[in-house]
Amino acid sequence: MKDRILNSQEFRSLVRSKNAISLILTVAQLFIYFGFILLLAYNKEFLGQKIYGPVTIGIPVGIGVIILTWLLTGIYVAWSNKKYDQKLSEIREKLVGGE
């Protein structure tokens, strides 16, 4: 059973797509956060500029990082709940035998 699963097209595509999503989203998250702190380290003035009354660019950017972080986990979970679980149940049905 082990080899049948490993060599199956379905399992390979499952692993490939899951790894691709995980990698892309991880890189996106690294980019967002380290982008934010490097911007802070190298260009404080930019984030300190006022955009609306007393509000500086830094405030929506900082809150934005929090929201984006959450959205990324949301994208991952939405993808997994839909695509991954569908592939998974196909594999389980076909190769693992119900369960």
Partner: peptide
Amino acid sequence: GFLVGWPIVTF
């Protein structure tokens, strides 16, 4: 800084 580790846990 304390929030950004959570996606890593997820992914």
